[in-house]
Design a protein around this nucleic acid. Structure first.
Lengths: 351, 351
DNA sequence: TAGCGTCCTGCAATCGTTGTCAGCAACCGC
DNA sequence: GCGGTTGCTGACAACGATTGCAGGACGCTA
């Protein structure tokens, strides 16, 4: 028993058109051929469609790109995908999206599966471990990093990210300027680039502002809604809860808001909130959500361009590292701490 | 000049392990082989990885599934993807996601590109035109519909959807029970199954309730935020604006809420709102959003099961059509019309 | 008419794997 | 000791396309 393929082959077409397979192949690729129309009509009659497998086996090209992201649910990645797709469409490449669920193991599986099916990979790694990128490199497939980097890698790849440290710093400075002194953070995992960098930016800015960060003011969530929810409950459960909080990504912010909602803590009266990444809902909330925003589709576009250049070999060996800027978008969820909250804080501090 | 492949082939491995290529192949597929460990170590040394292209050319299988959706930004589809992925992981299939941007032409491109790279396709069609499904069918690739159907198709496929008409009806009945008589709809395009069915369900329910639907109370958006925004502006621009509105999908609801926000129309005092599809933000809004909700991940799971059964030939030829139920989730965005609004309406009607 | 370039063509050799088939050894039961 | 299993093996022919090469047909110039 053999393959399940129904369709006809290029030689079927050739036979019926009275030419050789080579001629059909060339015609399909746009070369001038005398029997062009005849071939076309036979193709139509037979419903011929070239076997992708055979094509890529022979030519070594596939015409597609894999975009591997940790969480497809995250609107940030959805936007990146849109950008990448639009940038690839022009050159006739198709984008396949794969989800790793933030797990390096799933990422390994996905990459294993994707290698050999695509001409290049855009990867938003789930961790800073460089195992998986190394696999890709060994297979000789061009790779571009997005949003994350890996450490200690012997080779580096083209990378596109944002200035996470500065984004976090801006959030802190904004809150400090409003008069907050008790500022907490809901941080992503330190094993990932955005998690770590935003955490470090937060800490450095707090330090520079002369504000201490007690252990109880640091809570980790897993970049997902649920983690943000739990982290925020922990922060608000403190004997002296913070008057402001910086949340390290959009999904965690949603979870955090749910927690705040449940405990009926008024925003911004009792608590100011700054999220990371803008969201279509951010200004529908009441009050609107202050966020650190960053280019999203643009990252996808740039990543794809870098990758296509690599694939075409149009680029010098030197890998590039592109860092984009963040912007603070102030809405109603941040305000000066209320007098009572401030007094509370002072009292406790002097106790 | 030939292919860019760096890696080694199965015969390289065979040579260095002192066996034949067949033996290596068998070992890779789990058959008992005497030199197993030797082969393994050679594979490791050479970094051998079988060529997917050659494998699928030879075996006619690819081990992957395409999931083709009109809009990856829509959280509904993100959830479907998650469901499908989890259902496929068990059987060792990988899912590729492709975006058609609600355009039948892009859909045709995507399908063209995907055919021959996957063992099966789950398709949420962008329109009810059956051109693209027919292409898939002609190629002999199993296909499962999700969320939509196509009309007039000579063959039917396994299909999984929700009872859109009943969902819309429940929304109308809820609003009518609250006392609303002036109910408008922001509808998706009638060329798509969910757009059409929700529209029809709305109309039928209004008719049954004896409520007229003037032309001005029907506004179409393109299933996207922008369309919902514009449609809602149109509705609210009426001389006698509706006291309640049913919005036919989640992204349009976001746009509609933005419009309502801009015009500073109070919800639910001046306008009750029912959306379609629940959303993580729905209960963070103030007031919370009343929605028609439906199973999401579950649809992905079921679709994938149906497809895998087809692929394995484990199923009778008869295609199945599975219809899931919707549920009305009432939150604060719906309330009885305010006395003034009601009076207004009565006055106008008797004028 | 010979000589040369251009254009188009078919042949045949791949690309890397899998599956069929025959073959060889070892082992079983009688 | 002999036929009949097993258990493993290698040779070889696909799978369906692409592509280097050689060559035929044709037109042009000298």
């Amino acid at each position: 028993m053999s393959t399940a393929r129904r369709g006809s082959t290029i030689s079927d077409v050739a036979d019926r058109a009275g030419v050789s397979a080579s001629t059909v192949s060339r015609h399909l690729h746009g070369d001038a051929v005398r029997q062009g129309e005849a071939i076309d009509s036979v193709i139509k009659i037979l419903g011929f469609r070239p076997s992708r497998a055979a094509q890529s086996l022979r030519s070594g090209r596939t015409g597609s790109i894999a975009l591997v992201v940790p969480d497809i649910t995250n609107p940030f990645f959805a936007a990146v995908v849109r950008g990448a797709e639009s940038a690839s469409a022009a050159e006739g490449f198709t984008v396949f999206l794969s989800n790793t669920e933030e797990s390096p193991e799933r990422e390994a599986q996905v990459i294993d599966n994707v290698l050999g099916r695509v001409d290049g990979i855009i990867l938003a790694p789930a961790s800073e471990d460089d195992q998986n990128p190394a696999t890709v490199h060994r297979a000789g497939v061009p790779l571009v990093f997005i949003d994350c980097e890996t450490t200690g890698s012997p080779v580096t790849f083209d990378t596109i990210l944002v200035d996470n440290r500065r984004g976090a710093r801006e959030a802190v400075e904004h809150l400090a300027a409003l008069g907050h002194r008790d500022i907490a953070i809901v941080s992503g995992p330190l094993g990932s680039t955005p998690g770590r960098e935003r955490y470090e930016g937060f800490m450095a800015a707090m330090d520079d502002a002369g504000l201490p960060v007690p252990d109880g003011y640091v809570a980790f969530g897993g970049f997902k809604e649920r983690g943000g929810h739990q982290a925020m409950l922990r922060l608000l459960g403190q004997t002296r809860p913070p008057t402001a909080v910086f949340v390290g990504n959009n999904l965690m912010t949603i979870g955090a808001l749910h927690a705040i909602h449940e405990l009926a803590v008024p925003i911004p009266d009792a608590l100011s909130v700054v999220g990371f990444d803008d969201h279509v809902f951010a200004d529908l909330l009441h009050p609107g959500l202050t966020v650190v925003e960053r280019p999203m589709e643009e990252q996808g576009v740039i990543a794809m361009r870098l990758l296509l250049n690599r694939i075409a070999g149009r680029v010098d060996a030197q890998p590039r590292r592109i860092v984009l800027d963040t912007t603070l978008r102030v809405r109603g969820s941040t305000a000066p701490p209320s007098p009572t909250a401030a007094m509370n804080a002072r009292a406790t501090r002097h106790a």
